[in-house]
Design a protein around this nucleic acid. Structure first.
Lengths: 106, 106
DNA sequence: GCAGAACATGCCCTTGACGTTATATAACGA
DNA sequence: TCGTTATATAACGTCAAGGGCATGTTCTGC
């Protein structure tokens, strides 16, 4: 079930995803806003597409790229088994109170 | 605020984190359970340590590695702006996905 | 059909990750 | 102190990601 974090590892790809968060974009829009070369944008988009984080919607001779929620849900799902850690830590100040009253365990 | 996903990208490191989820381990325990070489374990642990995902607690001549919740909280925080996407989708597509949540084998 | 726009891909080079073996470092026990 | 245990680092070869430039490919409108 190895989540593909490699696609998220590159800063340019993180920037692309952040851009697409607002709304879908064409390649050239990303090229302009991120100030990268067009081939580089296409290559990073390919990585993101192969990893399932984006989809390309053909639109005339352009291709509008959009986020694919399922991929992000998988990341969240991967993260889920670790969630108790920092949530418990937030309750750390009340750790002593935990002894007095019994709560349900995760 | 670029989250360091590179550390999470490698399958061996994902395995290490999964092991540490149960309880802290020494290097040799990880070597045995993951069936990797000792230098390799040390190197991957170094990457995870530099990225903040684990800490080494000296214990006699051993070093017990433990997860560091803050790093995972940062990942969750990075993911937060994307959360609305699949949560909205769950409302639209249905709650069936909510029940078959732990079914995924690529 | 043709020209141009919008992307994708191929090729080349550089750099760095990964894994292995060998060796260094540090702490413990006798 | 000496040997052993436990871990870290060094040195080295391999291989693929990343970025550049150049070239395909596909669609559109004239």
């Amino acid at each position: 079930m190895a989540v593909t974090f490699e696609a998220l590892a590159h800063p340019v790809r993180q920037d692309i995803l952040a851009e697409l968060r607002a709304r879908p974009r064409t390649v050239n829009e990303l090229v302009d806003s991120l100030r990268i070369s067009q081939p580089l944008a296409s290559k990073h988009l390919r990585v993101l597409r192969d990893a399932g984080f984006v989809v390309a919607v053909p639109e005339a001779q352009k291709r509008r790229y959009a986020l694919r929620p399922e991929a992000f849900a998988e990341v969240a799902q991967w993260l889920e088994p670790y969630r108790w850690m920092w949530e418990d830590r937030l309750d750390l100040l009340g750790a002593q109170l935990d002894e007095m009253k019994e709560e349900d365990e995760p």
